[in-house]
């Protein structure tokens, strides 16, 4: 089996601090991986750098054996909820439709088929009734579900989610994890930047432990140990290498 994602020697900085240092790993298809690490360890930056949303200082990233720009339609990205202005005048269905813009192309309007797809995606996340609801009226959990529906509608093969469970209610958390497991069962690959150590073993079959560089990566049952956790989370504050020196 070929890996869906290959990262070699990835380097990135944020302001003047190096946040990604010689990051190297492979992700196999059909896995549900948690990316964990302390704050500032580079988890969000990792996703953004892989997706060309953040400048890369060095290294190589391959999606499905090719560069990201050739594989964009196969990769679904769910950014953090806080990255968006929820007062924007639009409704839930419209937000999900945006996930199809890449496919609709220039100069064309979303058609009936697109609207049906969007409604289906909302339904999968239990949000069909909220299709016409203004997004500012949605709760945090509901907003997150809309975001996930937007990713689903892209029908990607690899999904990258940035803290999807942050600040959501228990029901939403269950719904999201259910959906991610369904995706895995369908042969898709999912990577999630996760913030809660307690739930890693319940939710994820693989884990990538990151603290500027990869501390450990592999099946949860094998590598998620006291030792690796200590190495990932300990001593972070003492080391802060500057890029400019």
């Amino acid at each position: 089996m070929e890996p869906v994602l290959q990262v070699r020697g990835l380097h990135a900085a944020y302001r003047r601090t190096k946040v990604l240092d010689h990051v190297t790993f492979d992700v196999m298809p059909g896995t549900l991986t948690a990316i964990i690490g302390p704050n500032g360890a580079g988890k969000s930056t990792l996703l953004k750098t892989m997706l060309d949303l953040h400048p890369r200082l060095g290294g190589e990233v391959r999606f499905f054996g090719t560069a990201y720009r050739n594989a964009k339609l196969k990769v679904g990205y769910v950014p953090q909820r806080g990255s968006v202005d929820w007062d924007f005048p639009t409704d839930a269905l419209d937000v999900v439709l945006m996930g199809l813009y890449g496919r609709i192309g220039w100069f064309r309007r979303p058609g009936r088929r697109h609207r049906e797809l969007a409604l289906e995606a909302l339904d999968k996340m239990g949000m069909a009734d909220f299709a016409k609801r203004q997004i500012s009226e949605l709760s945090g959990g509901q907003q997150q579900r809309v975001f996930l529906a937007r990713a689903l509608v892209q029908d990607a093969d690899l999904y990258l989610l940035d803290e999807p469970l942050a600040g959501v209610d228990a029901a939403t958390e269950r719904a999201i994890m259910e959906m991610l497991k369904t995706l895995r069962a369908a042969g898709k690959t999912v990577m999630v930047v996760h913030h809660d150590l307690q739930t890693v073993e319940d939710y994820f079959d693989h884990v990538l432990m990151l603290n500027r560089t990869v501390i450990a990566h592999g099946p949860t049952t094998e590598i998620f140990t006291q030792d690796t956790i200590a190495r990932t989370y300990g001593g972070w504050l003492r080391r802060k290498e500057r890029v400019t020196g």
Partner: peptide, 12 residues
């Protein structure tokens, strides 16, 4: 780090 871009489909 290795700078030359990988050829299409070349294994790492």
């Amino acid at each position: 780090v290795r700078r030359d871009p990988l050829a299409e489909g070349e294994a790492l």
